[in-house]
């Protein structure tokens, strides 16, 4: 109270606010702070940025989940319990074809995004259909590999190594399945609703998801198949 008495025009008992109580040079708007929305001075970011950003964070969390599965695989890789090892089981040709299909599917997905940006519905639907076909082809090959392994008495219950193998690869496969379901939904939505802003945002998220699955596959291919076949 005493400190405020000297201030001219002050209300008794109330101390005028200093803008920067910690003397940290953070008072004025402007300098050093970008005006871009969402980064301090500009206010909330536009919806497209917010949605994309949120989806990126989701993808990061998904990758953390895969990281846990990869860690488990790395620990259990040696746990073959006298059963078959990766070198005996993996057919790298098959895996190479799978990789090719998935990458082509991603390429088609990229084309679909371009078609979307150009607002060309036919091209979009065609590119999405191609994306679907390649993705489904990938899934079919993976399923064939799985059934083949089970038939050779190398199913997931055979050893901890195979448990981890089926889980890492199968989890990626489940993501692809979910992605295909989503893809069909997006095709139907564009068909029914046209290029509405909210649908554009959803297609953007879908394509982020689809490309992220590629990234995860690269890790699966390297860590599980290449390094697994080497040991």
């Amino acid at each position: 109270m005493s400190s405020s008495a000297a201030m001219p025009g002050a209300v008794p008992g109330v101390v005028p606010m200093r803008r920067d109580p910690n003397h940290l040079g953070h008072h004025a708007a402007g300098e050093g702070e970008t005006r871009a929305p969402g980064r301090g001075i500009g206010g909330p970011a536009p919806k497209r940025i917010v949605v994309g950003y949120g989806f990126w964070i989701f993808l990061l969390s998904d990758i953390v989940m895969f990281a846990a599965f990869f860690a488990a695989f790395a620990v259990l890789q040696g746990g073959t319990a006298g059963g078959p090892t990766g070198a005996e089981l993996f057919d790298l040709t098959n895996v190479a074809i799978e990789t090719g299909l998935l990458l082509l599917s991603s390429f088609a997905c990229g084309i679909a995004t371009l078609a979307l940006n150009a607002r060309r519905p036919l091209a979009f639907q065609a590119a999405m259909a191609v994306t679907f076909l390649f993705g489904a082809g990938f899934l079919a090959l993976e399923l064939r590999e799985f059934t083949d392994l089970v038939a050779r008495d190398a199913g997931p219950t055979r050893s901890a190594f195979l448990s981890a193998f089926f889980t890492v690869v199968g989890c990626h496969g489940l993501h692809v399945t979910a992605g295909l379901l989503w893809l069909l939904t997006m095709m139907a939505q564009v068909l029914a609703k046209g290029f509405r802003p909210d649908i554009l945002r959803r297609v953007m998220c879908f394509s982020l998801f689809w490309h992220a699955l590629d990234i995860v596959w690269v890790a699966v291919f390297t860590v599980v198949y290449l390094m697994g076949a080497a040991t």
Binding site: S2, R18, H23
Partner: peptide, 9 residues
């Protein structure tokens, strides 16, 4: 007690 409403660092 001495009130120092701005003292924060």
């Amino acid at each position: 007690a001495h009130y120092r409403p701005d003292w924060a660092f």
